[in-house]
Design a protein around this nucleic acid. Sequence first.
DNA 1: TTCTGGTTCCCCACTTTTCGCCACTTACTA
DNA 2: TAGTAAGTGGCGAAAAGTGGGGAACCAGAA
Lengths: 144, 144
Amino acid sequence: MFIGEYKHSIDSKKRLALPSKFRGEFKGKVVVTRGLDQCLFVYPMSEWKKIAEKLGNMPVGEKSTRSFVRLMLAGAIDLDLDSQGRIVIPDYLKNYAKLKKAVTVAGLFNRLELWDEGAWDKYKSGAEKDQDKIAEQLGRLGIY
Amino acid sequence: MFIGEYKHSIDSKKRLALPSKFRGEFKGKVVVTRGLDQCLFVYPMSEWKKIAEKLGNMPVGEKSTRSFVRLMLAGAIDLDLDSQGRIVIPDYLKNYAKLKKAVTVAGLFNRLELWDEGAWDKYKSGAEKDQDKIAEQLGRLGIY
DNA sequence: TTCTGGTTCCCCACTTTTCGCCACTTACTA
DNA sequence: TAGTAAGTGGCGAAAAGTGGGGAACCAGAA
Protein backbone atom coordinates (compact mmCIF):
# COMPACT_ATOMS: atom_id res chain seq x y z
CA MET A 1 0.00 0.00 0.00
CA PHE A 2 1.38 3.36 -1.04
CA ILE A 3 1.21 6.23 1.38
CA GLY A 4 3.06 9.46 2.06
CA GLU A 5 4.58 12.37 0.20
CA TYR A 6 8.15 12.42 -1.11
CA LYS A 7 10.33 14.92 -2.92
CA HIS A 8 12.60 13.67 -5.67
CA SER A 9 14.27 15.17 -8.69
CA ILE A 10 14.54 14.34 -12.38
CA ASP A 11 18.12 14.45 -13.59
CA SER A 12 19.41 15.51 -16.98
CA LYS A 13 18.72 12.06 -18.37
CA LYS A 14 15.08 12.16 -17.31
CA ARG A 15 15.65 9.64 -14.56
CA LEU A 16 13.51 9.74 -11.44
CA ALA A 17 14.14 7.71 -8.30
CA LEU A 18 11.12 6.09 -6.69
CA PRO A 19 10.97 6.03 -2.88
CA SER A 20 13.03 3.10 -1.73
CA LYS A 21 10.38 1.77 0.62
CA PHE A 22 8.14 0.89 -2.34
CA ARG A 23 10.68 -0.78 -4.57
CA GLY A 24 9.88 -4.17 -3.16
CA GLU A 25 6.28 -3.90 -4.32
CA PHE A 26 7.28 -3.02 -7.86
CA LYS A 27 9.57 -5.97 -8.43
CA GLY A 28 11.60 -3.99 -10.93
CA LYS A 29 8.71 -3.08 -13.21
CA VAL A 30 6.14 -0.29 -13.21
CA VAL A 31 3.56 1.20 -15.56
CA VAL A 32 3.20 4.96 -15.78
CA THR A 33 0.05 6.51 -17.25
CA ARG A 34 -1.55 9.87 -17.77
CA GLY A 35 -3.46 10.78 -14.63
CA LEU A 36 -6.08 13.32 -13.79
CA ASP A 37 -5.27 16.97 -13.01
CA GLN A 38 -2.00 16.89 -14.97
CA CYS A 39 -0.23 14.31 -12.89
CA LEU A 40 1.06 10.84 -13.72
CA PHE A 41 -0.12 7.58 -12.18
CA VAL A 42 2.39 4.86 -11.35
CA TYR A 43 1.06 1.33 -10.98
CA PRO A 44 2.73 -1.95 -10.12
CA MET A 45 2.38 -4.37 -13.02
CA SER A 46 -0.24 -6.44 -11.21
CA GLU A 47 -2.57 -3.45 -10.80
CA TRP A 48 -2.04 -2.30 -14.35
CA LYS A 49 -2.93 -5.64 -15.86
CA LYS A 50 -6.41 -5.38 -14.37
CA ILE A 51 -6.86 -1.95 -15.90
CA ALA A 52 -5.41 -2.83 -19.29
CA GLU A 53 -7.60 -5.88 -19.57
CA LYS A 54 -10.69 -3.74 -19.09
CA LEU A 55 -9.47 -1.13 -21.53
CA GLY A 56 -8.53 -3.66 -24.17
CA ASN A 57 -11.98 -5.19 -24.12
CA MET A 58 -13.95 -1.97 -24.42
CA PRO A 59 -16.07 -1.68 -27.57
CA VAL A 60 -14.41 0.43 -30.27
CA GLY A 61 -17.67 1.33 -31.95
CA GLU A 62 -18.28 4.58 -30.17
CA LYS A 63 -16.03 7.45 -31.03
CA SER A 64 -15.63 8.81 -27.52
CA THR A 65 -14.82 5.39 -26.10
CA ARG A 66 -12.26 4.89 -28.81
CA SER A 67 -10.46 8.10 -28.00
CA PHE A 68 -10.56 7.36 -24.30
CA VAL A 69 -8.96 3.95 -24.81
CA ARG A 70 -6.36 5.45 -27.11
CA LEU A 71 -5.48 8.10 -24.61
CA MET A 72 -5.12 5.62 -21.77
CA LEU A 73 -3.30 2.81 -23.55
CA ALA A 74 -1.06 4.87 -25.78
CA GLY A 75 -0.45 7.20 -22.87
CA ALA A 76 0.82 4.39 -20.71
CA ILE A 77 4.29 2.92 -20.70
CA ASP A 78 5.91 0.02 -18.91
CA LEU A 79 9.30 0.81 -17.47
CA ASP A 80 12.09 -1.10 -15.77
CA LEU A 81 13.75 0.21 -12.64
CA ASP A 82 17.51 0.50 -12.94
CA SER A 83 19.82 -0.89 -10.29
CA GLN A 84 19.36 2.30 -8.26
CA GLY A 85 15.56 2.12 -8.33
CA ARG A 86 15.05 4.82 -10.94
CA ILE A 87 12.77 5.02 -13.97
CA VAL A 88 13.23 7.06 -17.16
CA ILE A 89 10.20 9.25 -17.87
CA PRO A 90 9.44 9.46 -21.61
CA ASP A 91 9.16 12.93 -23.10
CA TYR A 92 5.48 12.76 -23.89
CA LEU A 93 4.59 11.97 -20.28
CA LYS A 94 7.06 14.44 -18.88
CA ASN A 95 5.46 17.11 -21.02
CA TYR A 96 1.93 16.06 -20.17
CA ALA A 97 2.54 16.51 -16.45
CA LYS A 98 4.76 19.55 -17.05
CA LEU A 99 7.49 17.98 -14.95
CA LYS A 100 10.66 19.98 -14.45
CA LYS A 101 13.39 19.08 -12.02
CA ALA A 102 11.55 18.99 -8.70
CA VAL A 103 8.89 16.29 -8.49
CA THR A 104 6.54 15.33 -5.68
CA VAL A 105 5.77 11.64 -5.38
CA ALA A 106 2.51 10.96 -3.56
CA GLY A 107 1.28 7.59 -2.35
CA LEU A 108 -2.41 6.94 -3.06
CA PHE A 109 -3.26 3.51 -1.74
CA ASN A 110 -2.87 1.37 -4.85
CA ARG A 111 -0.73 3.74 -6.91
CA LEU A 112 1.81 6.54 -6.78
CA GLU A 113 1.24 9.93 -8.32
CA LEU A 114 3.94 12.11 -9.84
CA TRP A 115 3.46 15.86 -9.69
CA ASP A 116 5.53 18.83 -10.64
CA GLU A 117 6.41 20.20 -7.22
CA GLY A 118 4.98 23.61 -7.90
CA ALA A 119 1.73 22.22 -9.25
CA TRP A 120 1.41 19.93 -6.27
CA ASP A 121 1.83 22.73 -3.75
CA LYS A 122 -0.72 24.81 -5.55
CA TYR A 123 -3.19 21.96 -5.79
CA LYS A 124 -2.74 21.10 -2.15
CA SER A 125 -3.26 24.62 -0.87
CA GLY A 126 -6.37 24.81 -2.99
CA ALA A 127 -7.65 21.59 -1.52
CA GLU A 128 -6.82 22.65 2.01
CA LYS A 129 -8.94 25.73 1.61
CA ASP A 130 -11.84 23.49 0.88
CA GLN A 131 -11.84 21.93 4.31
CA ASP A 132 -15.57 22.21 4.76
CA LYS A 133 -16.32 20.32 1.61
CA ILE A 134 -13.80 17.65 2.49
CA ALA A 135 -15.37 17.23 5.91
CA GLU A 136 -18.73 16.88 4.27
CA GLN A 137 -17.44 14.16 1.95
CA LEU A 138 -15.85 12.30 4.81
CA GLY A 139 -19.15 12.33 6.60
CA ARG A 140 -20.89 10.92 3.58
CA LEU A 141 -18.35 8.12 3.44
CA GLY A 142 -18.94 7.31 7.09
CA ILE A 143 -15.51 8.47 8.27
CA TYR A 144 -15.43 10.53 11.44
CA MET B 1 0.75 -6.25 -24.80
CA PHE B 2 1.36 -3.06 -26.76
CA ILE B 3 1.33 0.26 -24.93
CA GLY B 4 3.08 3.59 -25.23
CA GLU B 5 3.72 6.29 -27.76
CA TYR B 6 6.78 6.32 -30.03
CA LYS B 7 8.11 8.69 -32.65
CA HIS B 8 9.64 7.23 -35.79
CA SER B 9 10.21 8.39 -39.33
CA ILE B 10 9.57 7.04 -42.81
CA ASP B 11 12.67 7.32 -44.97
CA SER B 12 12.92 7.97 -48.69
CA LYS B 13 12.38 4.28 -49.37
CA LYS B 14 9.12 4.21 -47.40
CA ARG B 15 10.69 2.21 -44.63
CA LEU B 16 9.44 2.56 -41.07
CA ALA B 17 11.15 1.12 -38.01
CA LEU B 18 8.90 -0.47 -35.40
CA PRO B 19 9.81 0.06 -31.73
CA SER B 20 12.48 -2.47 -30.83
CA LYS B 21 10.73 -3.58 -27.66
CA PHE B 22 7.92 -5.12 -29.70
CA ARG B 23 9.93 -6.92 -32.33
CA GLY B 24 9.97 -10.08 -30.33
CA GLU B 25 6.19 -10.28 -30.43
CA PHE B 26 6.07 -9.92 -34.20
CA LYS B 27 8.49 -12.70 -35.03
CA GLY B 28 9.44 -11.02 -38.28
CA LYS B 29 5.95 -10.76 -39.70
CA VAL B 30 3.11 -8.25 -39.33
CA VAL B 31 -0.24 -7.50 -40.91
CA VAL B 32 -1.02 -3.88 -41.68
CA THR B 33 -4.50 -2.70 -42.53
CA ARG B 34 -6.63 0.42 -42.76
CA GLY B 35 -7.78 1.49 -39.32
CA LEU B 36 -10.38 3.80 -37.88
CA ASP B 37 -9.86 7.57 -37.83
CA GLN B 38 -7.30 7.67 -40.66
CA CYS B 39 -4.64 5.57 -39.02
CA LEU B 40 -3.18 2.17 -39.82
CA PHE B 41 -3.49 -0.91 -37.62
CA VAL B 42 -0.53 -3.23 -37.21
CA TYR B 43 -1.19 -6.73 -35.87
CA PRO B 44 1.08 -9.64 -35.09
CA MET B 45 0.08 -12.58 -37.29
CA SER B 46 -1.48 -14.46 -34.37
CA GLU B 47 -3.76 -11.55 -33.45
CA TRP B 48 -4.69 -10.91 -37.04
CA LYS B 49 -5.98 -14.42 -37.45
CA LYS B 50 -8.41 -13.87 -34.60
CA ILE B 51 -9.53 -10.54 -36.01
CA ALA B 52 -10.00 -11.88 -39.51
CA GLU B 53 -12.04 -14.75 -38.12
CA LYS B 54 -14.36 -12.34 -36.32
CA LEU B 55 -14.67 -10.08 -39.33
CA GLY B 56 -15.48 -12.98 -41.62
CA ASN B 57 -18.29 -14.09 -39.36
CA MET B 58 -19.92 -10.70 -38.95
CA PRO B 59 -23.48 -10.36 -40.19
CA VAL B 60 -23.47 -8.63 -43.57
CA GLY B 61 -26.96 -7.26 -43.18
CA GLU B 62 -26.13 -3.79 -42.05
CA LYS B 63 -24.53 -1.45 -44.49
CA SER B 64 -22.12 0.12 -42.02
CA THR B 65 -20.91 -3.30 -40.90
CA ARG B 66 -20.30 -4.29 -44.48
CA SER B 67 -18.19 -1.27 -45.20
CA PHE B 68 -16.24 -1.73 -41.99
CA VAL B 69 -15.41 -5.32 -42.87
CA ARG B 70 -14.34 -4.26 -46.36
CA LEU B 71 -12.15 -1.53 -44.94
CA MET B 72 -10.32 -3.94 -42.68
CA LEU B 73 -10.07 -7.03 -44.84
CA ALA B 74 -9.55 -5.59 -48.29
CA GLY B 75 -6.77 -3.28 -47.26
CA ALA B 76 -4.84 -5.82 -45.25
CA ILE B 77 -1.35 -6.87 -46.24
CA ASP B 78 1.27 -8.98 -44.56
CA LEU B 79 4.78 -7.59 -44.43
CA ASP B 80 8.18 -8.89 -43.39
CA LEU B 81 10.49 -6.97 -41.09
CA ASP B 82 13.97 -6.40 -42.49
CA SER B 83 17.06 -7.12 -40.45
CA GLN B 84 16.79 -3.71 -38.80
CA GLY B 85 13.19 -4.25 -37.74
CA ARG B 86 11.63 -2.05 -40.43
CA ILE B 87 8.62 -2.55 -42.67
CA VAL B 88 7.95 -1.00 -46.08
CA ILE B 89 4.59 0.79 -46.15
CA PRO B 90 2.76 0.34 -49.47
CA ASP B 91 1.64 3.51 -51.20
CA TYR B 92 -2.09 2.93 -50.85
CA LEU B 93 -1.79 2.58 -47.08
CA LYS B 94 0.63 5.44 -46.77
CA ASN B 95 -1.84 7.62 -48.65
CA TYR B 96 -4.84 6.41 -46.68
CA ALA B 97 -3.27 7.50 -43.39
CA LYS B 98 -1.70 10.57 -45.00
CA LEU B 99 1.68 9.59 -43.64
CA LYS B 100 4.56 11.92 -44.31
CA LYS B 101 7.98 11.66 -42.73
CA ALA B 102 7.17 11.93 -39.04
CA VAL B 103 5.03 9.07 -37.76
CA THR B 104 3.68 8.34 -34.29
CA VAL B 105 3.46 4.68 -33.35
CA ALA B 106 0.90 4.02 -30.62
CA GLY B 107 0.53 0.81 -28.62
CA LEU B 108 -3.11 -0.25 -28.20
CA PHE B 109 -3.19 -3.50 -26.29
CA ASN B 110 -3.37 -6.06 -29.08
CA ARG B 111 -2.16 -3.88 -31.94
CA LEU B 112 -0.04 -0.90 -32.90
CA GLU B 113 -1.45 2.13 -34.65
CA LEU B 114 0.43 4.30 -37.13
CA TRP B 115 -0.45 7.98 -37.27
CA ASP B 116 0.90 10.96 -39.08
CA GLU B 117 2.52 12.86 -36.24
CA GLY B 118 0.54 16.03 -36.80
CA ALA B 119 -2.76 14.18 -36.99
CA TRP B 120 -1.96 12.31 -33.80
CA ASP B 121 -1.15 15.46 -31.85
CA LYS B 122 -4.37 17.03 -33.01
CA TYR B 123 -6.43 13.97 -32.17
CA LYS B 124 -4.84 13.71 -28.76
CA SER B 125 -5.31 17.32 -27.76
CA GLY B 126 -8.93 17.03 -28.81
CA ALA B 127 -9.43 13.99 -26.60
CA GLU B 128 -7.53 15.44 -23.67
CA LYS B 129 -9.73 18.47 -23.47
CA ASP B 130 -12.62 16.69 -21.86
CA GLN B 131 -11.12 15.81 -18.51
CA ASP B 132 -14.53 15.44 -16.88
CA LYS B 133 -15.52 12.72 -19.31
CA ILE B 134 -12.21 10.99 -18.77
CA ALA B 135 -12.71 11.04 -15.01
CA GLU B 136 -16.18 9.66 -15.51
CA GLN B 137 -14.91 6.84 -17.70
CA LEU B 138 -12.18 6.03 -15.21
CA GLY B 139 -14.75 5.84 -12.49
CA ARG B 140 -16.76 3.41 -14.54
CA LEU B 141 -13.70 1.21 -14.86
CA GLY B 142 -13.23 1.26 -11.14
CA ILE B 143 -10.13 3.45 -11.14
CA TYR B 144 -10.04 6.18 -8.54
C1' DT C 1 17.56 -12.04 -76.84
C1' DT C 2 19.67 -7.87 -74.92
C1' DC C 3 19.46 -3.36 -73.15
C1' DT C 4 17.53 0.03 -70.10
C1' DG C 5 14.98 2.04 -66.39
C1' DG C 6 12.77 1.33 -62.27
C1' DT C 7 11.83 -1.03 -57.98
C1' DT C 8 12.83 -4.01 -54.17
C1' DC C 9 15.70 -6.03 -50.97
C1' DC C 10 19.89 -6.97 -48.37
C1' DC C 11 23.65 -5.36 -46.00
C1' DC C 12 26.83 -2.01 -44.05
C1' DA C 13 27.81 2.34 -41.63
C1' DC C 14 27.05 6.46 -39.10
C1' DT C 15 24.80 8.98 -35.29
C1' DT C 16 22.13 9.40 -31.38
C1' DT C 17 20.01 7.58 -27.52
C1' DT C 18 19.72 4.42 -23.91
C1' DC C 19 21.33 1.41 -20.36
C1' DG C 20 24.28 -0.58 -16.85
C1' DC C 21 27.50 0.38 -13.70
C1' DC C 22 30.35 3.01 -10.51
C1' DA C 23 31.07 6.85 -7.40
C1' DC C 24 30.07 10.80 -4.73
C1' DT C 25 27.11 13.14 -1.32
C1' DT C 26 23.54 13.68 1.76
C1' DA C 27 20.53 12.04 5.38
C1' DC C 28 19.37 9.12 8.91
C1' DT C 29 20.55 5.78 12.72
C1' DA C 30 22.65 3.79 16.38
C1' DT D 1 30.49 10.27 15.00
C1' DA D 2 30.97 6.22 12.54
C1' DG D 3 28.17 3.39 9.65
C1' DT D 4 24.56 2.45 6.60
C1' DA D 5 21.18 3.45 3.27
C1' DA D 6 19.13 6.52 -0.03
C1' DG D 7 19.40 9.92 -3.67
C1' DT D 8 21.96 11.98 -7.39
C1' DG D 9 25.40 12.48 -11.05
C1' DG D 10 28.41 10.90 -14.71
C1' DC D 11 31.02 7.79 -17.66
C1' DG D 12 31.59 4.15 -21.13
C1' DA D 13 29.49 0.38 -23.66
C1' DA D 14 25.77 -1.20 -26.19
C1' DA D 15 21.70 -0.79 -28.73
C1' DA D 16 18.38 1.56 -31.57
C1' DG D 17 17.17 4.53 -35.37
C1' DT D 18 18.33 6.24 -39.74
C1' DG D 19 20.52 6.69 -44.23
C1' DG D 20 22.61 4.96 -48.36
C1' DG D 21 25.16 1.82 -51.68
C1' DG D 22 24.71 -1.87 -54.62
C1' DA D 23 23.09 -6.45 -56.09
C1' DA D 24 19.04 -8.87 -57.72
C1' DC D 25 14.79 -8.78 -59.96
C1' DC D 26 11.25 -7.49 -63.22
C1' DA D 27 9.24 -5.19 -66.65
C1' DG D 28 8.88 -3.09 -71.44
C1' DA D 29 11.39 -1.63 -75.79
C1' DA D 30 14.54 -2.23 -79.43
